[in-house]
Design a protein around this nucleic acid. Structure first.
Lengths: 153, 153
DNA sequence: CATTTTTGTTAAGTAAGTTTACCATATCAC
DNA sequence: GTGATATGGTAAACTTACTTAACAAAAATG
């Protein structure tokens, strides 16, 4: 391994450390302004429904990359806790469509704010990066994504 | 938000997408060459012991960021499955030191190979990035890490 | 020596899934 | 139209990977 590759390995290690820390961050429960703690997969579900109003359970499951049984369980729990409502489709008698309640929307907005705050911090810090640098980073991320996709089979 | 910030936001989104995909990758069980599936936290434990031979349970727990009860449970399971051995400390009568068995070492090596293969792929792709570019990426990651740390409190 | 700290374990509970099995509704094939 | 198949949803039981709480043994501290 030459000198340049050593530096790359260092930055790579730093990259994975940051990835790990972000993962840690997304393991805890937070109160998104509704006076109740919401666990990652709970707010993740609320987010998916907030972004896809009237989605059905199967599509939600696909969207979130879990089985429909898992989605069904999560949805029922969030419904009894008043974050969403299950409504029957007008077109057929089997689909259950999902919409956020006012309370669910509040949590959704709180979560969005939470995320955009982090985003804004990053964007501020990265302000002033020249066009060329940004293109380089984009290219590297593209390559990393390609290899990660390959490993995912 | 100006034009440059829009581009930054795009790259940021790409960054988080890659982070998520890596997270997905590290959720599954793999066979690391021992003819048996190992779950993430199992191989993670083997990795920690492989890198810190004769570590005790409490230190392992600290190292892995879990409670010592969790570490104790994981260690017992891996011991009965023949991946590691609990040995008594020579210096005192209460510490349990952990060492990998041949089978454990095999899994450890398999996992290392798996990871360095991904690493090597990345390094190859990033070969030829000028010194300055690498420094820039390093700086950005540093800033991101700073903000992530802040959010972790 | 008495107290406190450290180390490790077990038991019970929780979060977020999975697999399996099942039922109801839709859609196709013919 | 009817029988087979596909789609949508749910419940039950199980699993992974933790947590908290309670505890016992050993070591360190005063």
């Amino acid at each position: 391994m030459n000198d340049g590759q050593k530096n790359i390995a260092l930055v790579m290690g730093q990259f994975f450390r940051v990835v790990n820390k972000i993962r840690e961050l997304e393991k805890r429960a937070y109160d998104f302004g509704v006076g109740e703690l919401l666990f990652p997969s709970e707010i993740h579900t609320i987010q998916a429904i907030g972004n896809n109003s009237c989605i059905n359970v199967s599509s939600l499951a696909r969207e979130m990359g879990v089985t429909k049984a898992a989605a069904s369980q999560m949805v029922s729990k969030l419904a009894t806790r008043g974050f969403l409502q299950k409504v029957k489709s007008l077109e057929n008698d089997k689909e259950v469509l999902l919409v956020l309640t006012a309370r669910g929307k509040l949590a959704f907005e709180g979560h969005e704010k939470f995320h955009t705050a982090l985003y804004e911090d990053f964007i501020k810090e990265m302000d002033g990066i020249p066009e060329a640098g940004l293109r380089m980073i984009h290219g590297i991320l593209e390559k990393i994504e390609y290899h990660v996709d390959r490993y995912r089979e």
